[in-house]
Amino acid sequence: DETGKELVLVLYDYQEKSPREVTIKKGDILTLLNSTNKDWWKIEVNDRQGFVPAAYLKKLD
């Protein structure tokens, strides 16, 4: 059920640097789980959840 889920576009590649982070690729469109922290957003990638720098993402309307 995708209702109410926010999507984000990945602006730059990011390689995870800790187990709490996930790797993302430029151009991916992913589900945003939590954006309350202005610097690190929690997203879902391939059934994995983790954090990436918010500056690497853009919210889609």
Rank of each mutant, 00 (worst) to 15 (best):
Y14S: 01
L11E: 03
A54R: 12
P53N: 02
K5H: 14
V10W: 01
T23E: 03
E21F: 04
A55F: 10
V22H: 03
L9I: 11
P53L: 04
E44Y: 06
I43L: 07
Y12P: 00
K38P: 15
V45W: 08
K58M: 14
L60R: 04
G4N: 12
V10D: 00
V45N: 08
I24L: 05
L33F: 04
T31S: 09
F51Q: 03
K5S: 10
L33G: 01
Q15P: 05
L30Y: 11
L11P: 00
F51K: 02
L11S: 02
K59F: 07
W40I: 03
G4C: 14
L9E: 08
Q15N: 12
V10N: 00
I24W: 01
V22K: 02
Y14W: 09
A54I: 04
K42Q: 13
E44K: 12
T36H: 13
W41F: 04
K58H: 09
G4L: 14
Y12V: 09
D39I: 15
G27H: 05
T31N: 09
A55M: 12
D13P: 06
P19I: 09
I29A: 02
A55G: 10
Y12R: 15
Q15C: 10
K59A: 06
L60W: 08
L7M: 11
I29Q: 04
V45P: 00
Q15M: 12
D61F: 13
T23S: 15
V52N: 01
E44V: 11
I43H: 00
D61Y: 11
K42E: 15
K38F: 08
A55P: 08
R20H: 13
G27I: 01
W40M: 06
K5E: 08
S18C: 09
K38N: 11
P19A: 12
V52R: 01
Q15E: 14
R20F: 13
Y14D: 01
L30S: 03
T36R: 11
T31I: 15
N46W: 09
Q49H: 09
P53D: 01
L30F: 09
P19N: 10
E21Q: 11
R48N: 05
Y56S: 08
I43W: 00
K58N: 05
V10F: 01
L9Y: 11
L60F: 08
K26H: 06
I29D: 00
P53C: 04
D28F: 08
K25E: 06
W41C: 01
L9W: 07
D39C: 15
R20E: 10
E2I: 14
D13K: 03
P19L: 09
A55E: 09
R48F: 06
V45E: 03
S35D: 13
K26E: 07
T23C: 04
V8H: 01
Y14Q: 00
Q15S: 10
D13Y: 04
D28C: 10
F51I: 07
K42N: 05
A54F: 02
T31A: 11
E44M: 11
E6S: 14
A54N: 03
D1V: 14
K26D: 02
K26R: 10
D1M: 12
V52K: 00
S35Q: 09
I43K: 00
I29W: 04
E21V: 03
D1W: 12
I43G: 00
P19Y: 08
K42V: 11
Q49G: 05
L33T: 05
Y56M: 08
Q15L: 12
D1Y: 12
T31V: 15
Y56P: 01
F51M: 07
K17A: 10
Y12G: 07
I43E: 00
L32H: 01
S18A: 11
K5D: 08
L9K: 06
K25D: 03
L57A: 01
T36Q: 13
P19W: 07
K26P: 03
K38I: 10
E21M: 04
L57M: 04
K17G: 07
L57R: 00
L33H: 05
L32Q: 00
W40D: 01
E16P: 10
T23D: 03
W40Y: 07
R20P: 06
R20K: 10
V22Q: 04
P53V: 02
I24P: 00
L11N: 02
I29V: 11
D61W: 10
T36V: 10
I24F: 02
T3M: 13
N34Q: 10
L60G: 03
A54L: 02
D28P: 01
L57G: 00
T3D: 11
K25V: 10
G27W: 06
Q49S: 11
L7V: 08
Q49R: 11
L57S: 00
K58V: 12
E2D: 13
K25Y: 14
D13H: 06
V22S: 03
E16Y: 05
I29K: 05
T23H: 03
Q49D: 06
A55Q: 11
N34R: 07
Y12I: 08
W41M: 02
D39R: 15
N37V: 05
K58S: 09
V52H: 01
L33Y: 04
E21N: 05
S35Y: 08
K17E: 07
A55S: 12
K25P: 01
G4T: 13
Y12T: 08
D1T: 14
I29L: 07
L30I: 09
P53A: 02
G50P: 02
N34A: 09
I43A: 01
I29P: 00
K17P: 04
D1E: 11
K42T: 06
A55H: 11
V45G: 07
L57Q: 00
D47R: 10
G4Q: 14
S35M: 08
K17R: 14
E21C: 05
P53G: 01
I43C: 04
G27Q: 02
G27K: 02
V8G: 02
N34D: 15
K38S: 12
D39L: 14
E6A: 12
D13G: 06
T23I: 03
N46I: 10
Y56Q: 03
D28H: 10
F51P: 00
K25C: 10
Q49T: 12
K17W: 04
E44T: 07
Q49E: 10
K59T: 06
V8N: 00
L30R: 12
G50V: 09
V52S: 02
V22P: 02
D47H: 11
E44I: 10
Y56R: 04
D28K: 06
E6Q: 15
I24H: 01
V8M: 03
D28G: 06
N37Q: 08
E16K: 12
Q49F: 07
K17I: 07
V22C: 10
T31D: 05
T31F: 11
E21D: 04
E16W: 07
L33Q: 03
D13T: 06
